[in-house]
């Protein structure tokens, strides 16, 4: 199959993939290089509009918005990846043990899980942040812990489903240990579900981080964060609408691209 017909057949995958690729490239660039120091203030350029020097203009402190969007993108990306990573690693571990062994362990863990899931997640994050203090790392940890129960439940379902399949029986019959069965035989079979969970989780993490920063309990100034910038831009919505639009578009594109990519992947899988 040539590339053109592949793209035409999988428009979602192609469009989502390209948007995601661009966003990732921008975010990675933002980690190492931005046109201006995202935190350098230039009062003379305060709230200046789009110009060749500042392609997205400047904010209320005269900081270059494009540089800040780049830096904000990478912050968001790092937090989201960290969150999903914590969630999936611990979620898979808990899901594997509870799903594979079942019994009392399963009951206890899942009731605990239900209890955590019953809380509004943003409220729990708030409690966590007020105890641990805010900042990039703490936001990642707080969100990661919040994500564990839902991942654990999904992975538990997968392990439960595979536990009594014939190929697991034959692995047991070969004398494989429980650990080997769980992580060598069953785990690769859960990758499909795991990937779509990761994709949904990534979007949720981006939104949660942006939401928390918007409320002021996430990433703290002067660190650039898309949510934080959006809340600042709100005050200048009528003076300088470009500020809010540029920042908002970054979040929208990030999530749109990624959900299209994951949907396209799921359809093909």
């Amino acid at each position: 199959m040539n590339i053109k017909s592949f793209i035409l057949k999988n428009k979602r995958l192609a469009i989502g993939g390209s948007i995601t690729a661009i966003m990732v490239i921008l975010a990675v660039t933002g980690l190492f290089f931005t046109p201006y120091d995202p935190n350098a203030m230039d009062i003379s350029a305060k709230l200046s509009g789009i110009s060749p020097r500042h392609i997205m203009g400047c904010d209320n402190f005269g900081r270059d918005i494009f540089s800040r969007v780049l830096a904000g993108l990478s912050t968001t990306m790092v937090v989201a990846v960290g969150t999903v990573f914590i969630g999936i690693v611990f979620g898979t571990l808990i899901g594997a043990f509870t799903g594979y062994y079942g019994g009392y362990l399963d009951e206890i863990m899942m009731r605990f899980n239900d209890a955590v899931l019953a809380f509004p997640s943003l409220l729990l994050a708030l409690v966590f942040i007020s105890v641990m203090g805010s900042g990039k790392l703490n936001v990642t940890i707080a969100l990661g812990i919040l994500f564990i129960p839902s991942y654990a439940r999904i992975m538990r379902g997968e392990f439960l489903k595979c536990r009594n399949l014939d190929y697991v029986m034959s692995a047991r019959l070969m004398g494989a240990s429980d650990m080997r069965i769980m992580f060598v035989h069953i785990l690769p079979n859960t990758v499909r579900v795991m990937l779509s969970t990761i994709a949904i989780g990534f979007n949720n993490a981006v939104l949660a981080e942006a939401g928390m920063s918007y409320l002021g309990i996430g990433v703290q100034p002067p660190d650039a964060s898309l949510g934080r910038m959006l809340s600042e831009a709100q005050s200048y919505l009528f003076v300088r609408p470009g500020y809010a639009v540029c920042t908002g578009m970054a979040i929208v594109l990030l999530i749109l691209g990624f959900s299209m990519l994951s949907e396209g992947l799921e359809k093909n899988a």
């Binding site: 399949l165 014939d166 190929y167 029986m169 034959s170 692995a171 035989h185 690769p188 079979n189 990758v191």
Partner: peptide, 8 residues
């Protein structure tokens, strides 16, 4: 048909 692990 089901005794072999489909991803290995």
């Amino acid at each position: 048909m089901t005794s072999l692990n489909p991803v290995k």
